[in-house]
Nucleic acid binder design. Structure first.
Length: 423
RNA sequence: GGAGAAUUGGCAGAGUGGUCGAAUGCGGCAGUCUUGAAAACUGUUGAGGGUCACACCUCCGGGGGUUCGAAUCCCUCAUUCUCCGCCA
């Protein structure tokens, strides 16, 4: 949620920047400003009514004490009138505040100035590329064929137990999953992140805090009976640790990491591009989350990108980094860098990580603040990224590391898997 | 799931109908002392709205009610603790 004072002071800038996300926000921004003016007017009115009523109450108390009950009773009549008026006013006020809030919830974050304009992934800007694309033997297979050939992932079994998009990992496949999780966590911990084990279900307030609710309700699995949601990413429970929290400045920066399964309904997306591990309803991910001082968040973003680079370098996977264009940048993000690994057998790039700076957008919803040097509460910046999401990394490994003898395990993973080849 | 107790400022913790946005302690900030720091002492210190600044308004877990007036009484929900039940 954007900050109201920021919108008021930077109206034109906000509209211009949101145009990069292909949104004409003129009407919404004008409404926000006029709603707020209405709100202020009603509030003043209500405040004055309450002030009068408070003063009368005090007077009545004093009159009773001095034994002048008759005079007091006279005043009581007046307060009941004021009470009715204030009730009306406060109802009007609540309605206005709700309308304003609803509107603010609908306005996406303003993209950073270096975010390129654009509508589709074709407009994303490649900022870095590294790693050699391997030459595979004749008859190299896509990962879903490899999974079957070596019996390490069973998609049909998942269909039977749950449905499409819930694969079953078996034997060395399961062990490789566990190895990747442990390896990613260790890398993150070595860089200063503290490991957390987080709930896999979240309540409504948490969904609102990070922006999944109310807008993207349909993307999460919902447990109706208890009104809880299955997490679509560890970002949600991880960032909500800091909901309604006032930190001291010395506690910053905060860096946490956690492994969780992620659940996404991904309604309506079927076809060739979602085959195998490319898109799932349940997948594993190790997330990194940072809470930063506003002045330092962009340095932190660079640090996160470098960190993920280091992991992909160690895994020796060819990858590129994209600065997402406005149209591809998510609702809550001010800027996002995507990492894509080249999947040789599919001859396409697969997104394995997405690192974003949300600036104060989430913090404003969360009421995540810190006491600044002046002793005032100030919204912190939040950032997060995948470090890393498993399925597509796994797809990349299976496809790029395949040989006629079997799938060779990247060297850095071997201490974690306990084997060197899947055959 | 059943019974009882509790939920107050960054933290701990008083406060049972008006003088309470709220004692006290810790922490934070500023100062005195000190070469500097610590200790000690002094002052200051909740959040949001509103205002040029005041005034003023709201907030004592969430929501609702009683009352001229609620942190304080009532209802309800959530959470925590104790006891019982169930259980990996």
């Amino acid at each position: 949620m954007l900050q109201l004072p920021f919108i008021k002071e930077n109206k034109d800038l906000v509209i211009a920047r949101l145009a990069k996300k292909n949104i004409d926000a003129t009407a919404m921004i004008n409404d926000v400003i006029s709603f707020d003016e209405d709100r202020k007017r009603i509030q003043t009115n209500l405040d004055n009514t309450l002030a009068e009523s408070n003063a009368l109450s005090k007077e009545i108390g004093n009159l009773y004490k001095s034994g002048e009950a008759q005079k007091a009773n006279l005043l009581k009549e007046k307060t009941s009138q004021l009470k009715e008026l204030s009730k009306e006013l406060s109802e009007t006020l609540t309605a206005k505040v709700e309308a304003l809030k609803e509107l603010l919830f609908k306005i996406p974050n303003v993209p950073h100035e270096i975010v390129p304009a654009g509508t589709t992934e074709a407009d994303n800007e490649e900022t870095f590329r590294e790693g050699d694309i391997p030459k595979l033997y004749d008859g190299a297979l896509p990962h879903w064929e490899l999974a079957k050939k070596y019996d390490i992932i069973d998609f049909e079994l998942g269909n039977k137990i749950t449905g499409a998009g819930f694969p079953v990992y078996k034997g060395k496949g399961a062990r490789l999953q566990r190895a990747l999780i442990a390896y990613f966590l260790d890398k993150n911990i070595d860089t200063g992140y503290t490991e957390y084990q987080l709930p896999h279900l979240i309540n409504e307030a948490s969904g609102i805090g990070t922006g999944q609710l109310p807008d993207k309700e349909g993307q999460m699995y919902h447990v109706g009976e208890d009104n809880l949601y299955l997490i679509p990413t560890a970002e949600v429970p991880g960032t909500n640790i800091f909901r309604d929290v006032v930190l001291s400045e010395s506690e910053l920066p905060i860096a946490i990491t956690g492994y969780t399964p992620c659940f996404r309904r991904e309604a309506g997306s079927y076809g060739a591009h979602v085959r195998g591990l490319n898109r799932l309803h349940q997948f594993d991910k190790v997330e990194i989350i940072r809470v930063e001082h506003p002045r330092k968040s962009y340095d932190a973003l660079v640090g996160m990108v470098d960190h993920v680079k280091g992991i992909l370098q160690e895994l020796k996977l060819p990858y590129k980094i994209l600065r997402l264009c406005g149209g591809d940048t998510s609702f809550a993000a001010a800027i996002t860098y995507d990492f894509e690994v080249f999947s040789t057998a599919q001859d396409r790039w697969l997104e394995v990580s997405s690192i974003s700076n949300f600036e104060t957008f989430q913090a404003n919803r969360l009421k995540l603040r810190f006491k600044n040097a002046k002793g005032k509460n100030e919204l912190a910046h939040t950032l997060n990224g995948s470090s890393l999401a498993l399925p597509r990394v796994l797809a990349g490994i299976l496809e790029n590391y395949q040989t006629e003898e079997g799938i060779v395990i990247p060297e850095v993973l071997q201490p974690y898997t306990g084997f060197k080849i899947i055959n």
